[in-house]
Amino acid sequence: MSNLFRFLKRFHFILLFLFLQGIALILLVNYNRYQSGQFMRFYNEVSGAVFNARHSLAQYFNLRRSNVELAAENARLRSQIEQSYQRFDRSVFVVNDTVFRLQYEYIQAQIIKNTTSRRNNYLMINKGSNQGVREGMAVISPTGVVGIVRAVSNNFSSIMSLLHSDSRISARIKENNFSTGSVSWNGRLAGISQMLEIPPHIEVHVGDTVITSGFSLNFPEGILIGTVSRVQTRPTDNFHTLDIKLSTDFHTLDHVYVVRNLARNELDQLLQYHLPE
């Protein structure tokens, strides 16, 4: 027994280190599993409250730019409302409500924490499950795609940014019929994402527009992702790799919308039939 104590006394430093390091590594490795757990909810709520206080102060410095962005968006939306269209004779153009059904709803939110300089970047917004945000919902800004909701607490949610190593957004190129690509980020420059493995027969030019494909369950079709800024062709098999300049400026992001797909449940149920047993 006394030998044991002597051993512990002698090696307490390295034993304590290994013990604490073990805890840290377990947390690190299991991070994804904790994300929807009670622990993460607490974690979100605590840091959310602090960042919310910080943001309410810092927001004043961005008011001018936010106003300009929102005014621009207002103008665009105003041009789409009914009053902006010329009205034809009603007897010819009947508005048929059964043609269109609302599929997406938008929840307005503000960013209270944002990183762009890590390999895996997250954002935090001031809306959570109480306001209808759920895991897996898409997040867009007035200028383009932002990311996907990863964890939700009562009043805050953390969002996996496009600038994250696990981020894959199903995309297509507007100018041609290629529609099965996915946009990911290689971690080098904060405004430039990549599209890999574009087959050789697809013609791509610098300046082409990249939009969401609508094949995913969270993003509506046609949301702007960015424009092609560089095309590289692999000499061995002529496959292309595209650099995409993101239309969302992650450095100055403030107002975002969380997209709620009203048909999500129906689509999920349908997809279950295709899953292997």
Partner: peptide, 26 residues
């Protein structure tokens, strides 16, 4: 070790990176 553990944990809470700063600081 103990202060490193606590410091890393607190920084991790605010950067949304479980265990990352904790491990490096330890």
């Amino acid at each position: 070790l103990f202060s490193a553990f606590v410091l890393g944990f607190l920084v991790d809470i605010f950067s949304g990176t479980m265990g990352l700063n904790m491990s490096a600081t330890l």
